[in-house]
Each structure stands twice: as structure tokens, then as C-alpha cells.
């Protein structure tokens, strides 16, 4: 039986999200239309992949700042491979290999060399940004056409986009791994106390490298989804916005930023919350310049709520 506080927290974000939906519906009835709902479901896919990878990193007490720019780099890598071969198979394999390699590199630098995760991944952010502009001829866009991009980007199955279904399947798998496997409990243990995890005989380094490889892979998937949705790739896509949205989703979903606590369900509701906000800001014709203010404020508010959470955890412990 899950403990009551956790259930309540998850329900909080559910209520807030539903209340927001109702509010937006009252302001603009178009918000609740089927078309708009499925538009939201497609918009949240790249953010959701970032959030999912980041979730494990944050629960283990780390951060991966390279995920946003990483996914831009991988989208462009896919585009370049597509341009060279005219097919997607090579591109997808290249993206998966490259994203796992980036994650492995992050993981080794953090776990083996004991470098702070935010500095390692910050430098990777800049290298990814640099590479994304170097592997594509300057000032060019690559247009992505063909069955795969149309299928993933705009085909539906039983009313749901395939990309959204892919995201849901990944969330379910992550839920099972996080809650029902030993590896999942290792992640939580490391987030609570690395020392204790080591004493308990957990191979901390290996788990950490695995976590970063997973977050790398997620940014690879996010890159693929990004490219299918837009139909073209170019350097200078807003990778940092994607990163911030992903982090906001999991913090809003009640993941403790100090590590050691969080739920996949909460992360998913946090993701829906971000999706609804993003969509409504566009639908209600809120000026672009306000979007970032809003997001920064939402993250800051969620951090405040996180503090309350932390306090209650301290109180529980005593």
C-alpha cells in the first residue's frame, strides 16, 4: 500500500491540472476540443522524453543539463544521415549509438572521476551546441520527408498519435523498472545516501553510468521525435527551453530535487501540466515574450513547493 502523503501529493498535481483545464475551457471552449487535446499529446512527447530521462538522474541526486542541446544535436544527426543515405535506418542507429555514448561519457566523468554533474553536463551542453552547428552546412536546413517521418509525426492509432503512444509505453516501462526492479531501488538508494548505498554493496558507479546512459538515450529519442514533428532540422533550435520544460515537469510532479524521492506518475502529471500551460499560452494568444517569464516563475514556485515537501520529509524523519 503506497503511503498516504505520496498519494496526496500526486493527487494535488492532478487536481491543479484538471482545474487549469477547466479554467482554460471556460476562457476558450476550443481548448477542450479533440483536435486540441491530441495536439497537446503530440507537443509533450519530446518534453516527456527529456523529463523521463531526467527523472532518474534527479532521483539519484544528479542533474543532466546536456539533454536539451543533446536532443537538438541528435535531431540534426538524424537529418544529416537522412540527407546522406535517403533512409532513416542508418540515422536512427547513429542517434541511438551517439546518445548512449554521450550518456556513457557523462556517467564516467561523474561516477568514476567524481566531477560535479552540473559542470560536466554544462560543458557537454556547449559541445553539443557547437557540434550541432558544425555537422550541418552553415545556415542550412535539412527537410525530412518520407514514410517514417509522416508515420511517427502525424499518423494515429485508435485516436492517439503513435509518438504519444511510444511515450506512454516508455513511461509504463520506466514505472515497472523504477518500482519493481532492484535497479530502480538502487537509484533511490543512491539518491538518499551514496555512502549507505556503497556500504550496502551496491555498485554505485555502474548504476550511475547506467542512469546517465538512459538519460542520453532519452535525449536521442527526443531528438528523433523533435525532427518528425517539425519535418526539418536546423541548428539553433531551442534545446535549453526543452531542458527547462523537462526539469519543470518533474519538479512540479513532486520529485525531490535533492534526490531520493519521486514518482513516475507524478512526473507524468507534471508533464501534462506543462503541456497544458504551453498549449494554453499559445491558444490564448499570450505574447511570446511572456512564455519564458511564466515558465521561470512556475519552476521557482515548484521549487518552493519542493521545499515544503523537504520540510515534511524532515518532520517525518524525526
Amino acid at each position: 500500500m503506497p503511503d498516504l502523503g505520496r498519494l496526496l501529493r500526486e493527487k494535488n498535481i492532478i487536481f491543479v491540472t484538471l482545474a487549469l483545464c477547466l479554467l482554460f475551457f471556460l476562457i476558450s471552449p476550443r481548448f477542450m476540443s479533440v483536435e486540441n487535446m491530441s495536439a497537446i499529446s503530440r507537443q509533450i512527447v519530446p518534453i516527456g522524453l527529456i523529463a523521463l530521462g531526467q527523472f532518474f538522474v534527479v532521483v539519484s541526486g544528479n542533474i543532466d543539463l546536456s539533454m536539451g542541446m543533446g536532443s537538438v544535436l541528435f535531431a540534426i544527426l538524424l537529418g544529416v544521415c537522412f540527407g546522406l543515405t535517403g533512409g532513416v535506418a542508418v540515422g536512427i542507429v547513429a542517434v541511438i549509438v551517439a546518445s548512449l555514448a554521450l550518456g556513457f561519457l557523462n556517467g564516467v566523468l561523474v561516477a568514476k572521476l567524481k566531477l560535479p554533474a552540473f559542470i560536466v553536463t554544462l560543458s557537454m551542453l556547449f559541445m553539443a551546441q557547437g557540434l550541432s552547428g558544425l555537422i550541418i552546412p552553415r545556415g542550412q536546413q535539412i527537410f525530412l520527408m518520407g514514410g517514417f517521418f509522416r508515420f511517427v509525426g502525424s499518423e494515429k492509432f485508435m485516436g492517439f498519435y503513435w509518438s504519444f503512444l511510444f511515450l506512454v509505453v516508455l513511461f509504463v516501462l520506466a514505472y515497472i523498472v523504477y518500482n519493481h526492479t532492484r535497479w530502480g531501488s538502487y537509484v533511490v538508494a543512491i539518491g538518499n545516501s551514496e555512502e549507505n548505498a556503497k556500504l550496502a554493496g551496491i555498485n554505485v558507479d555502474r548504476v550511475k553510468i547506467g542512469i546517465f546512459m538512459f538519460s542520453g538515450l532519452c535525449s536521442g529519442f527526443a531528438g528523433i521525435m523533435l525532427s518528425t514533428r517539425m519535418g526539418f532540422v536546423q541548428p539553433g533550435l531551442d534545446g535549453n527551453g526543452l531542458l527547462l520544460d523537462g526539469i519543470a515537469a518533474i519538479i512540479i510532479g513532486g520529485t525531490l530535487i535533492l534526490g531520493g524521492r519521486g514518482t513516475i506518475g507524478g512526473a507524468f502529471w507534471g508533464l501534462l501540466f506543462i503541456g497544458v500551460i504551453n498549449n494554453a499560452l499559445n491558444l490564448l494568444n499570450v505574447e511570446d515574450v511572456w512564455h519564458q517569464v511564466f515558465k521561470g516563475a512556475v519552476i521557482l514556485a515548484a521549487l518552493g513547493a519542493n521545499w515544503v515537501l523537504w520540510q515534511s520529509r524532515q518532520a517525518e524523519a524525526h
Binding site: I63, I247, V289, K295, G296, L300, N306
Partner: peptide, 30 residues
């Protein structure tokens, strides 16, 4: 947020990184 609420510095300043840039865009109207 960092001193009083003891939240991690990179998380808090990542939020104000977005917030301050957004406010700048609003002030200048881009």
C-alpha cells in the same frame, strides 16, 4: 531560495536564468 530554503544553487539559478531572460524580453518587448 539557496540560503534560507537551502535548495540547490544550480536548480534555483537555472529557474532565475529563465525568469530573468523572460522578464528582459517582456521589458524590451523583444
Amino acid at each position: 531560495f539557496i540560503g534560507r530554503l537551502k535548495l540547490s544553487a544550480f536548480m534555483v539559478t537555472l529557474a532565475t536564468f529563465a525568469l530573468a531572460r523572460g522578464l528582459a524580453l517582456v521589458i524590451y518587448d523583444a
